[in-house]
Design a protein around this nucleic acid. Structure first.
Length: 751
DNA sequence: TGCAAGACTTAGGATTGTGGTA
DNA sequence: TACCACAATCCTAAGTCTTGCA
């Protein structure tokens, strides 16, 4: 990664941000009051529905009550609306649906989407919560009409409009979700237009069916044998199961690693009978090849299955998904992210993980903690078993948890990224980054000042923060030595991870970074820094050895505590989000040109995305088939070039004929040939763009930044501005995750 | 106050699905 | 129809940050 790229993003910020909402003290009080009322309403609803007799239909009842309440509220709002001069206000964007939206009175929630275009207003630093809105279904015609009206109206008028109604609820199939017609368009719930809980609770009602367990172990057929020291040996079921985990990985690089083999063998022996234990004493004498071939044959057989068999499996998976893949959270049927319990196997730690190869044991119902509403139908454990515990903790978002045996950490089943609970958090994350944008210059001035501090701890803090800001480094928490791979982030950098060059490649004060980051991905970068940073680093390195901490007076909690003082809610990772998003926005501005066609625009987008991936050091292993696929693509390009040249020749000839003959037929022929040339030129251009894109993407992973760091509103606004279909940028899953952004953003959005 | 546990986000690789082509 | 390449999705490890407790 080149240092100059990492610097680029620093030049980017210009102009002001549209901070769309602000707080009036008294309005705030009023809002608080209203919200408390609303909360009490909801709580009353919940407590009412919380009796134990209704188990079989609890959710239904709950829903009905909620509907009733909403109906009542809707009526009230309708009345209020009609008695006011409120008009519907249109959404400028039309990406998702034709729902119309009315803007409520400023209730203090921040970030009403309609305000993206609004005049800039001041607002409190600590405010970022979104503003709820109410929606109502409206015909497209009306929407269009209203759009026109809205375009003509000014912001002040919009502010006066009264709310109308909240979204339609999504129906839940209480029978366990028998398959809904797949293509049946289900109206999407616009959670982003509704109120948020502000009491720290994550939900009021939660019902689900619990996790799906992996199938029990199926012993190998007798003909498949394991050999020890050249002799066939029948293993006990427990030992055999663990042996199959290894056998399945025989071709994987893991099995060449000493730690992996050592850990596996140690844990495997624990599963052996005493007789097996006394016989099997060396891994190198074990022969798993028959097992390995058996599994390969099985996998091959799966591929060769008939269409009907495959369809049957697909249908069964769909059935399981419908039954276990959804939960009901506060009246809405929401998709669960990972509803399957992790199957047993061998631990695949990354990098030089000291525990790789250890046995990940099978999770039993007795290990599982269920989290759901008291008044929901609780998930049933498999017959003859019981759950470890059933909790009703609405301060957390998980549905199921268990403790894994490798690190002793807790694993969770949570909702899908398209869910309200994840989306809200995501939105909040980008709002936090936008808040940072507002005060980042002040923070930068502060840390530059701190480079001169008399106190070593402050200088270290300031230099570390400079790196986090400039290079988008991760915070770098302390890690348990010997328990995990040796990786570092900013605060945990050691002397051995940097080299100082007073001069390098014609530049002054260059810092050379070389360290294993998250997932043991190497971070290598040569960065020219300011003289004072360089001098400080020299100072920090004095009298230290390679293994010593670079920042020995700093850790992430000290740093984050400091950041918290600079801006409410600020932590080290916000800088990564901020710098990633601002880089995308700036790069898009720089790279997109109006005369580009759609494929070229997409290439520009990918290049902007790539700049971010480089900044964040999102790498991938080059695809195994990369060289081959590039070669194939090049062949296609060559072939297309030949075609083009032939087509051009034909066109020339046709023109000559037409000149001679002057008849309709030859004129027509010229037109046809012209079209052919044009078509082939376009095809060639597409192939060439594809080749460039692929080459530039060889070792860079774009997905991580797109999914986690780039404010989706930047991409949506860019698509709208340049007429690029959103489908070209986000696939179906991504569009579901970013539905909130797609719905609320217009082309003027500024991060 | 410091540390461990807990909760949640971020991450790359593996697996599966899909569409184009021979 | 089989095969291939790429995209989409799944999987779960590895981070960050917060919370709770001694």
């Amino acid at each position: 990664m080149s240092g100059d790229h990492a610097q680029k993003h620093r030049q980017m910020e210009s102009g002001s941000v549209d901070y769309n909402s602000y707080k009036h003290k008294d309005k705030h009080k009023e809002r608080e009051h209203n919200h408390k009322e609303h909360k009490r309403d909801k709580e009353r609803e919940n407590s009412k529905s919380g009796n134990s007799e209704h188990k079989s239909s609890s959710e239904k009842k709950h829903r009905e009550k909620e509907k009733e309440r909403l109906k009542h509220k809707e009526k009230q709002k309708e009345e209020k609306f009609h008695s006011s001069d409120g008009k519907y206000r249109d959404k400028e964007n039309g990406f998702v649906s034709s729902l119309s939206i009315k803007v409520e009175e400023d209730n203090g929630y921040h970030h009403n989407i309609k305000h993206e275009k609004a005049p800039k207003r001041e607002r409190d630093e600590d405010e970022y919560e979104h503003k709820p809105k109410k929606v109502k279904v409206e015909s497209e015609k009306k929407v269009k009409k209203r759009k026109q009206e809205d375009d003509d109206s000014d912001y002040g008028k919009r502010e006066e409009k009264k709310p109308k109604k909240r979204t339609k609820e999504i129906k839940k199939d209480t029978t366990g979700g028998k398959k809904k017609a797949k293509n049946e368009p289900e109206e999407k719930w616009k959670w982003w237009e509704e109120e948020k809980y502000t009491d720290g609770s994550k939900w009021r009602f939660l019902e689900h069916k619990g996790p799906v367990f992996p199938p029990p172990y199926e012993p190998l057929p007798d003909r498949i044998r394991f050999y020890y020291d050249g002799k066939a040996m029948k293993l006990s079921p427990g030992a055999e199961e663990v042996a199959t985990f290894y056998a399945k990985m025989l071709e994987h690089e893991y099995t060449t690693k000493d730690i992996f083999r050592k850990n596996f063998f140690k844990d495997w022996r624990k599963e052996m009978t005493s007789e097996e234990k006394s016989k099997i004493t060396e891994l190198k004498k074990c022969d798993f090849t028959e097992m390995n071939e058996y599994f390969k044959a099985q996998s091959e057989a799966r591929k060769q299955m008939s269409k009907e068999e495959k369809q049957k499996i697909k249908e069964e998976n769909e059935r399981i998904l419908q039954e276990y893949g959804y939960c009901v959270m506060d009246n809405h049927r929401e998709r669960i992210g990972n509803f399957r319990i992790e199957p047993p196997g061998l631990f695949r730690g990354r990098g030089d993980h000291p525990k790789m190869g250890k046995l990940k044991r099978r999770i039993r119902p007795e290990d599982i903690i269920i989290n759901c509403s008291k008044d929901s139908v609780h998930p049933k454990p498999p017959p003859g078993t019981r759950w470890k515990d059933i909790r009703h903790d609405n301060k957390v978002t998980w549905l199921v948890s268990w403790t894994e045996n490798i690190q002793g950490s807790i694993k969770y089943i949570m909702l899908n990224p398209s869910s309200r609970i994840k989306g809200e958090k995501d939105w909040q994350k980008y709002e936090m980054a936008r808040r940072l944008k507002k005060c980042v210059e002040r923070i930068r001035a502060q840390y530059r000042e701190d480079w001169r501090s008399k106190e070593m701890r402050i200088r270290q803090r300031a230099v570390a923060l400079y790196f986090i800001d400039k290079l988008a480094l991760r915070a770098g928490n302390e890690k348990d030595e010997g328990e995990t791979a040796d990786t570092v982030g900013c605060c945990s950098l050691r002397v051995e991870h940097i080299r100082l060059h007073p001069q390098m490649d014609g530049q002054d004060f260059v810092v050379e970074f070389d360290f294993p980051g998250k997932d043991s991905i190497r971070y290598y970068n040569k960065v020219p820094v300011e003289k004072r940073v360089f001098k400080n680093l020299q100072l920090f390195l004095e009298n230290k050895q390679g293994k010593d901490d670079l920042f020995d007076r700093l850790n992430t909690s000290i740093l984050n505590k400091h950041l918290q003082e600079l801006m409410d809610g600020l932590t080290a990772k916000v800088f990564r989000t901020y710098n990633a998003s601002i880089t995308l926005q700036q790069q898009l501005k720089e790279l997109t040109s109006p005369d580009e066609n759609i494929p070229e625009k997409i290439l520009s987008y990918n290049r902007a995305n790539r700049a971010v991936a480089v900044l964040c050091n999102h790498q991938r292993a080059p695809p195994k088939t990369f060289e081959k696929s590039m070669h194939n693509l090049q062949s296609k390009i060559d072939e297309k070039k030949k075609q083009l040249s032939a087509a051009k020749k034909e066109l020339k000839a046709a023109k000559a004929d037409a000149k001679m003959l002057h008849d309709e037929k030859s004129k027509k022929a010229v037109e046809t040939k012209k079209k052919a040339v044009q078509r082939i030129s376009e095809q060639l251009m597409k192939l060439e763009v594809q080749a460039t894109d692929r080459e530039e993407n060889k070792q860079i992973a774009l997905g991580t930044s797109k999914l986690n760091y780039l404010d989706p509103r930047i991409s949506v606004a860019w698509c709208k501005k340049w007429g690029v279909p959103i489908e070209k940028i986000y696939n179906k899953t991504q569009r579901e995750k970013f539905a909130w952004a797609i719905d609320m953003t217009d082309e003027d959005f500024e991060f």
